Computed example of a mutant assay.
Amino acid sequence: MTRIPDAVSVASLDTHRLIVAVPNEGPAEISCNLPRTVAADVLRQLADNLDSPAGRCATAILTGRPCPVHDAPSRPRGITSPSRIPFVNVDGSTPVQHPANNDDRRPTMPLDPSDVRGALDFNAGRADQVLASLRDVLLDTETPREPEHALAAARILLEAHARQIAALVEAEHDATHTRWGLSRSTRGLLTGYSSARKAVTAYADGLADEQALAEGAAGK
C-alpha cells in the first residue's frame, strides 16, 4: 500500500531560488531562478559537503562555503586525525598508533598567524576580503588563543584593511586625475589623495613591521 505522508511542504520560486525534487520513481526535477553557473556552483557545494565531513562548522553553515580553518588541508603542526593520536616510545623507537579517547586527546594548537593569512588567501577575490576573513577568524571559536595570538590576528587583518583603503584612495586619485586633469582647482584635491594614501600605507607598513618582529621573537 502506498504510504500517505502526514504533511506536504509546498515550495515555489516565489520563496526559493533553487528547488531540487528527487521522486522515488522517475527523473529528478530542478526549478531555478538563478543563473545556470551559480546554480551549478551551489549544487557542487552541496555535493562536496555530502561527500566529506568538511563544511560543518559555524563558518561553513553560515556562508555555505568550506571554512578556511577547519576545511583547509591539515598542517604538520596539528593532529590530523582525531581517531588516532601518535605517541613516541620511551626508547626512541618508531611511534605506534593508539586509539584515542576523550582523556588522551591533545589540545588543539592555538591560533597561528598562518591561519589568519590563510583566511585572507581563501577569501581573495571577494567583495570585501578582509571583512570575510575577520568573520572566519571570529567564528573559529574552537581554536584556543591567548592575547598575543589575538594581537597577531588583529595586526594582520588591520594591515590588510589599511592596504585595502590605500588602494581605494589611489583609485580615487587616478579617477579624478583622468577625468579632470591637473589644474589649479584639482591640484589640492590630488595632493590630499596622495597624502592620505601615504599615511595609510605607512600605518600598514608599521603593523607589518611589528608583526614581523613579534614572529621573529617567538621563533627564538
Rank of each mutant, 00 (worst) to 15 (best):
F122L: 05
S12Y: 04
L190G: 06
C57N: 04
A218T: 10
S74C: 12
N49D: 14
S81K: 05
R77T: 11
Q97G: 00
G192I: 10
R84H: 14
A40E: 14
H70V: 06
D91Y: 06
N49C: 12
P95H: 03
A196C: 12
R184I: 15
I79A: 10
A21C: 06
G219I: 13
T63G: 01
C57G: 03
G206P: 03
T94A: 06
R17C: 09
P35L: 12
D140P: 04
G118A: 06
M1Y: 13
R145V: 04
D51S: 12
Q129G: 03
C57M: 01
T2H: 14
D174L: 14
H70K: 07
P147Y: 09
T63A: 05
H98Y: 07
V116L: 01
S195H: 13
L207H: 00
Q129I: 02
E210C: 02
N24Q: 11
V8H: 09
A58R: 15
A7D: 15
R105V: 06
E25L: 10
A72I: 00
S52K: 10
S183W: 13
N102Y: 09
V38N: 08
T94W: 06
L189D: 14
P144D: 03
V88R: 12
G206C: 04
A119S: 05
L158D: 05
L120C: 01
T201P: 06
S81M: 02
T176P: 11
M109T: 15
A212I: 04
L13K: 02
A21P: 04
S83P: 04
D209I: 07
A167I: 06
S52H: 08
